[in-house]
């Protein structure tokens, strides 16, 4: 994981997360489905963890596939999750 702290992408629903997972894999963006941390308020229980260097390409996939996206979040050293713009 990068020194900046873990980066995750959150989607509207489980179905949408699965759709994102498939779209990322097709573009060779390695993601891992994880339990979404509770502090991130969104309806879906899951999130996709992805490598930092893939952030930009992930943004492109989300837009190309019109994925119902909630946002990116990053975990800081002190364990806080904050929205990544």
């Amino acid at each position: 994981m990068s020194i900046k702290g873990e980066l995750i992408a959150v989607f509207e629903s489980t179905h949408e997360t699965m759709r994102a997972e498939r779209a990322f894999k097709e573009r060779r963006i390695k993601v891992r489905a994880i339990m979404k941390p509770r502090v991130i308020s969104s309806s879906c229980q899951m999130a996709l963890s992805l490598p930092d260097e893939k952030h930009a390409s992930a943004v492109a996939v989300i837009s190309d596939e019109a994925l119902r996206f909630v946002g990116f979040f990053r975990k800081s050293k002190d364990g806080q999750w904050t929205p990544e713009l």
């Binding site: 489980t14 179905h15 997360t17 339990m35």
Partner: peptide, 19 residues
């Protein structure tokens, strides 16, 4: 159960419904 819990087998269940 699909959509319930994030452990590996629950994820496989979610993927099954999705696919």
């Amino acid at each position: 159960s699909p959509g319930r819990g994030g452990h590996k087998m629950a994820l496989t269940a979610s993927r099954t419904l999705f696919s």
